[in-house]
Amino acid sequence: MDKSTIVCRCEEITVEDIASAVSQGAETFDDVKRLTRCGMGLCQAKTCRIVISELIAEMKAKSAADISVPRLRMPLRPVPIGVLAANTASGSFVRSTLAEAEPDEGQEK
């Protein structure tokens, strides 16, 4: 395949980009994803997972069964923050780092 062919259209990642990640030692879709951003765009690898996995397999001279499936993450569809927030308890998983900061008060740890 032509090196400049796009394989991940969301992030415009080419065959050559994949080859470069593989040449650095990446072996799985997730490895390649972290180096190139392939599959990180709006479709979350729904379009490119198969072809990129096949490409990695080919470059590594492995079979498609050896290329594990990337981690697929929630939400399974893009959802507006306002929709996610509606109807959800506002008890927070997130504490501010300011609240957690403990200014010195003479005592040294």
């Binding site: 939400p75 569809r77 959802v79 929709v83 996610l84 509606a86 109807n87």
Partner: peptide, 22 residues
């Protein structure tokens, strides 16, 4: 309605575009 994920207790989260139904 789209199935978008799971809550920690295993119930499904489904969205019709306004809120998340559990």
């Amino acid at each position: 309605h789209e199935f978008i994920g799971l809550f920690a207790d295993g119930s499904a989260g489904v969205s019709g575009g306004e809120k998340i139904l559990r």
